[in-house]
Computed example of a mutant assay.
Amino acid sequence: MYKKLWTWIGVSQLLVLLFSIIFYKRIDFLSYTNVSFIIGSILILSSMLGYVMKGRFFDVVFYSFQHVFSRMTDRDRRPLSELVPQKYYLPFITGVVTILLMLCSLFFYKSL
């Protein structure tokens, strides 16, 4: 678990640096802060969406759409919570770490 977590964190930080170079043509505290906020927010929001979908919140709506718009039998219908992947902890923890690193860089940027 910890090896996967460090891999996710490393890849997210590499993406932050890569997108800083692509969009800002430099790596400084401001570009790192902006890009890491966006990447961290995307990771946190996508993991929260997976958590809500896994919590059977949308199962009734999904079932009714399957009933109205498809020719499936009752045996073939599956709720949305069974179709969503189980792994939403790693993106959430990675997003939180990215946001924390963003806050640290923002603190250093403001203190300069």
Rank of each mutant, 00 (worst) to 15 (best):
F58Q: 01
I42W: 12
L17A: 13
D59R: 00
Y51R: 08
K54G: 05
Y51E: 12
Q86N: 13
V16E: 05
L83H: 14
Q66E: 00
S12A: 15
Y24I: 01
D74Q: 07
Y24A: 07
S41A: 15
I22N: 03
F23K: 10
L15S: 11
R26S: 07
N34P: 01
D28P: 03
I22D: 05
W8G: 14
N34R: 11
I99K: 04
S111M: 14
L49H: 08
W8I: 09
F58E: 02
G95E: 14
K110E: 12
Y32L: 08
R56C: 01
K54D: 05
D28F: 06
F62G: 03
Y109V: 04
Y63H: 04
K3D: 09
L15D: 02
I27C: 03
M53L: 15
V52K: 09
K4A: 13
Y24L: 06
I42M: 13
K25R: 09
G10W: 08
L100I: 11
P79S: 05
S36K: 09
K87Q: 15
K87E: 15
P85T: 11
S46V: 13
I93F: 12
W6M: 12
T33M: 11
L49C: 03
V11S: 09
L18T: 14
M102V: 06
W8D: 15
F108Y: 13
G40S: 07
R77S: 11
L49N: 11
I99N: 08
Q86Y: 10
L80N: 00
F69E: 01
Y2F: 15
K54N: 10
R77K: 15
G55P: 04
W6Q: 06
D28G: 11
D59Q: 00
F108E: 05
I42Y: 15
L101Q: 10
L5D: 06
F23I: 08
